[in-house]
């Protein structure tokens, strides 16, 4: 989903919210073995496990330093000494891609946290209480939605200044709407169900009803969606670095590495191509994981 992040995010949202909304209800029915039936889940989790280990054990997996420049070894094609070649400063690309996993995986996870929390909170309040709280929240959603995702993020980053921290802020301000809408529509579907009405009838307070009863039934689609969103934000961070608005060189961030390799694409393709492949593999891992969790939660319907 990293591609043209902007447009796909609304689209994915539109496509998935419908199918995901139903998933939560069936969560209770799935036995724990159905998780193992999902091939997507297993493949996605395995790739991710490898990537996370690569990030954690990077210093032990390579003899080089990510920033160490060896001018006499510049622009070497992949070899035994340098499995992914070297860049124009003679830095080992394998090392940089490994260390890049540390940055990019962390970026994806951190970036998804705040919009997730903000969105779920606002969505819960809007969906459960309705009335003016709902109107207010939905108008805010309308306004944020009117901006193209990437344009608004670039605009905010331009005001706050470049860098990853400001990207997190920009994403939090923009991306919460997806979670708010997703959880709101699920809660609207749950609100008048017997168990909620029963809990209200015996005098349970609203906070307790939301957290104890409604929440477990509506949170799963959001978690599934967050998985695919992580892939999106890794692509976004890479894209902003590419535009010079994200992580700055010489940090071994995958997007920045692609960007710095672009002038050499005719002579040294590996400088751009390999970090790009790393983004693709990571994206696929999270997509498979998201799909897999979705599959596991609705055993009956596997399209």
């Amino acid at each position: 989903m990293a591609v043209s992040n902007e447009s796909s995010r609304t689209v994915v949202d539109a496509g998935q919210s419908a199918t995901l909304a139903g998933a939560a209800r069936e969560v209770r029915q799935s036995s724990r073995w159905t998780w193992l039936r999902s091939r997507n889940l297993i493949i996605g989790a395995s790739i991710l496990a490898i990537l996370v280990s690569a990030a954690i054990f990077a210093p032990w997996l390579t003899p080089y330093e990510p920033q160490a420049q060896v001018p006499e070894e510049a622009l070497q094609s992949p070899s035994l000494d340098h499995p992914f070649g070297t860049d124009n400063f003679g830095r080992d690309m394998f090392t940089r891609v490994l260390y890049g996993a540390r940055i990019d995986l962390r970026v994806g996870v951190i970036a998804v946290l705040s919009p997730f929390v903000i969105g779920v909170l606002i969505g819960c309040i809007a969906g459960y209480f309705g009335g003016w709280a709902d109107t207010l929240a939905m108008r805010a959603v309308d306004i944020v939605q009117a901006f193209p995702f990437l344009v608004l993020v670039i605009f905010i980053v331009s005001v706050l200044g470049p860098g990853l921290r400001n990207m997190y802020i920009a994403v939090a301000l923009v991306a919460w709407i997806v979670y708010a809408r997703l959880i709101r529509s699920s809660i609207l579907a749950e609100r008048n169900k017997e168990y909620v009405v029963a809990a209200q009838a015996i005098g349970g307070n609203d906070l307790r009803i939301i957290t104890q009863h409604v929440f477990p039934n509506v949170i799963t689609p959001c978690i599934v969606f967050a998985m695919t969103d992580i892939a999106l934000y890794i692509g976004l961070a890479a894209g902003l670095s590419y535009l010079g608005l994200g992580e700055r060189p010489p940090a071994p961030e995958w997007g920045a590495m692609i960007s710095s390799g672009q002038p050499f694409m005719t002579t040294a393709w590996w400088i751009s191509a390999i970090p790009g492949a790393a983004i693709v593999v990571t994206g696929i891992a999270f997509s498979l994981l998201g799909d897999g969790i979705g599959d596991a939660l609705r055993p009956g319907s596997r399209a």
Partner: peptide, 22 residues
Amino acid sequence: LMVTMVMPSFYTGILLIIGLSI
């Protein structure tokens, strides 16, 4: 599709330039 979907657009673009233009 899964591959082209997770590809950042600038990466797809660069690959297309390398393949089809250069």
